[in-house]
Nucleic acid binder design. Structure first.
Lengths: 336, 336
DNA sequence: TTGAAAGCGCTAACAT
DNA sequence: ATGTTAGCGCTTTCAA
């Protein structure tokens, strides 16, 4: 049979409860005792039984990653960041794909938390921007940490200066001589779409360029919406020399249309995206984009969540740096 | 407090144990009793406590998805297939990213299973092809189900006729008039690489074409290895008119090199891949490839695993159909 | 600072 | 076909 807490207690010459205290890092144990227990646990290769802990402790030591994100690479990166951090902190992880348009969404999350006694949630966009959901979680006192929330409610998690990143991208294009720079917005459910648009506008302003609403097209973060937007932009009387899509998938849609029309990238039109998903290296020419350290963001978000689970007063909103990743899809404006 | 099994028992006028029987679908309950219990459970909105079940039952009702796969979209599709199926069958799911080159791999998996009392494992390539791992799992009687195993050991899970798929792809190219068809092999740790190569060879044979070893290049399933292979093929005295890469990532590498050289796809050279990952639609021109129903495969693999957990004698190897997805990257051979 | 006892909510084993 | 009892391995009381 497997090693139980009692075996460790016996080996260390203490009671079960003391072993339990050591395991859970409770402070009220003498150092000498603590070390003796730790040595015994190690010698016996003791691993606490998760189910027993959960049952007795009335909590799950379980964190759930909730997502509704079309980008597989984004979710996978986040997933791995969360898994690693959970492992290091002896938490388990559940994954829950969700449909953010589902009217039963909140109820579903509530019952997930209730049944599995989830200790805390990690949210990814666009769930991070659903006010009703966040309000309900606050109301129920369910700790939750957001990856890239795009609202102003504080809370805990990790953010990126999306606004500045978009602004930098515009500056990059301006430096290349572009003056007619189009923007394809992201999906309206994502707060990021607004921030990126705002960054685009301040980038123009900073360069002394006029904001032309005709150059801003609605998109949905999808390849197909990128295609549609590109077609709309090419139909303009005076077409742009650069197209800044709010994510990489839309940028690849744009590139497809340009290729079909025999336009050269970046010779005729520069294209750039946002996210630095793996696809940005795989298209031709390789896509200029904004790198997000998604895995580290997930790591940090998990760390903050675990802090908040232990002490609801702690846990903060951490900011991580982005990086403009210039590749071959952006170049000098034609005639520069 | 939450509803417990005792409350349901009281409401239905039976013992706890009978409720437990109904919940676990044990056959030895009269229909009338069963219905009464089910009604009571529903009325009280009773949800069994997973930790208590696990502790008392000495098992976890937990399945783990193990992977070491560079393709995010593949893993995500598989993940969702597994999650949905687990939910439907009241199993929990863990996800465990692994490094298949880690010498501690098997030990790590063993301790995962021991600690979390995992009931069964779902493996994806290349783990499905690691004989030492599979042997050890058999030895320890740990139920495991493979998605796309490429070995001949039987076992349970889901397969695809990879050989036939590759052969069909060659036939597709032959019909387009190609006679110099190159193949870029996949990573040697993946059994799929061998099957796809074998399919390529029988495709040639079926068309009466000679197998030319110079036209077969080693790859590693990565974008960069696709690039390197393409460069090698273009350096050949007589270059191929079609390049069949063993996966989509390598195919995109090939396309990048061809674009750089100013070669037209498919005008000068046709390119095709395997897997039908989302990227195949997003590159230009859209990639001809083989579609795998990964999500359904994961669903079926999970189903078989759950069967095998309940009854080790059951569970089979199910075969699912592939589909050749012809897009714009393949066309008539030059001069046809 | 440490320990003893009493559960946590369920299932296994053994009744009946 | 159903019930009774005794745990599963841990943490929470509460006492020392």
């Amino acid at each position: 049979m497997r090693v139980r807490i009692e075996d460790v207690a016996k080996a260390a010459g203490v009671s079960m409860k003391t072993v339990s205290r050591v395991l859970n890092n409770e402070p009220t144990v003498r150092d000498a005792t603590r070390e003796r227990v730790q040595a015994a646990a190690k010698a016996l290769n003791y691993r606490p039984d998760p189910s027993a802990r959960r049952l007795a402790g009335r909590r799950s030591y379980l964190v759930a990653l909730l997502y509704d994100n079309p980008s597989a690479s984004y979710v996978m990166e986040a997933l791995e960041g969360v898994v690693e951090t959970c492992q290091a902190h002896h938490y388990g992880m559940m994954v829950q794909p969700l449909d953010y348009t589902d009217p039963e969404l909140i109820a579903g999350i509530e019952s997930l938390v209730a049944i599995s006694k989830i200790d805390g949630l990690i949210l990814t966009p666009p769930l991070t921007d659903m006010t009703a959901l966040l309000d309900r979680l606050d109301e129920l006192n369910i700790p939750h940490s957001c990856i890239s929330p795009n609202n102003r409610r504080g809370g805990i998690g990790v953010t990126l200066q999306e606004h500045d990143a978009a602004q930098d991208m515009v500056s990059h294009l301006v430096e290349l001589g572009h003056t007619r720079i189009a923007h394809i917005k992201g999906h309206s459910a994502h707060g990021a779409s607004d921030w990126r648009l705002a960054g685009y506008r301040s980038g123009l302003r900073r360069a002394g360029l006029r904001y032309d609403p005709a150059l801003v097209i609605d998109g949905e973060f999808s390849f197909d919406s990128g295609r549609a937007a590109a077609e709309a932009l090419l139909a303009l009387p005076e077409r742009p020399t650069a197209i800044f899509a709010a994510n990489d998938d839309m940028a690849t849609g744009v590139m497809g249309v340009l290729h079909e029309r025999g336009l050269s990238i970046p010779g005729d039109i520069s294209v750039c995206g946002f996210d630095d998903t793996p696809i940005s290296r795989q298209v031709f020419p390789a896509l200029t984009t904004i790198h997000q350290p998604v895995r580290e963001m997930a790591h940090e978000a998990t760390l903050q969540l675990i802090k908040a689970i232990k002490d609801p007063a702690s846990g903060t909103l951490v900011q991580l740096p982005y990086a403009l990743q210039a590749r071959q899809s952006t170049g000098p404006a034609p005639g520069t």
